[in-house]
Amino acid sequence: MRKGKAADVESIADPQSPAIKRVFRKPGSFREGTTILVIIGLSIMMGILSPYFLTSANFRTMFMSFAINGMVVIAMTLALISGGIDLGVGSVMALVGVVVGTLFLNFHMNIWLASLVGLLLGLVIGTINGLFITKIGLSPFITTLGMMQVARGIANVVSQGMPLPLQSMPVEFKFIGRGIIGSTGIPFVIVLFLVVAVAFDFLSRRSTIIRKIYYVGSNEKAARFSGIDVNKVRMGVYMLVGVLAAFAGILSIARFNSATNTLAETVNMDAISAAVIGGASLNGGEGTIFGAVLGIALLALIQTSLNLLDVGPYWQSLVTGLVLLLAVSIDFLSHRKAR
């Protein structure tokens, strides 16, 4: 946990962003800082309450549980920043997993090649979303609600509801989902996630391309009146979201040794919750990758804590929901006071 945070923190310690300074100067007044404080507070409490909490095995499980979904959180955050949303990410994960698994199992395709096809499928789905949104002018919510069901439906049809056993996948491929790096004890997928997260966080603060997503989300008309090709930006967002969701789907089959049509059924809402806890707004123009990663970390931490404290799994949804409402309310009230 601490190791992971250090890496995240370095990612924003660039001259472009005063975020790191703000986090430590006035932690309580800053969304990401608040989330960090809650995470630290909860960790200390759990360290006292449960002897098992501070073990490396526990941290490994916890990180692995959100490393894959974390890819989707990054994607969702970008969609929210653009003023849109993508409800189809979980379905795309499942569909890509099923398609890659089928190609491998029934068509004896090389698993890496099959994965490439899976990524392309994600890109195609993202492109279709983008076309509906920019050319036909449907709202992202409606478009991706439809795509969510279409993608899940295809996954159901292709798999006929049967999980695909994929134990026969080559060990190198399994490594990306469940391998441990040498003697460090650190799972590869965590490192992979952190690299992707750090890269996207850096780019979201610095790159001219992602900056345009913020402009479009903040005020679409003003973006057009500033010479930004709004449709191109939105198109790009949904294509990227599709690819990231496909990537998460491929990591999932590597991790679980199987592909199922019911994979990731709640990931959409978890990803939205995480992004919003981390400071994204459904109105667009706001949010950071760092914040969203903290958001998903907090959700994973809560889930682990509930497990360790022997609170039944039925309580988890309730607690997650309350945390979301609390986080957003506190943020809203503090903003209102400032006005």
Partner: peptide, 24 residues
């Protein structure tokens, strides 16, 4: 307000928007 400014973004980001290449 509707077509000109990014009200929730900083002054810097509002001024640089038309030619980001200039500051990148």
């Amino acid at each position: 307000a509707l077509e000109g400014l990014f009200l929730d973004l900083s002054i810097s980001k509002n001024i640089s928007v038309m030619d980001l290449g200039k500051v990148a």
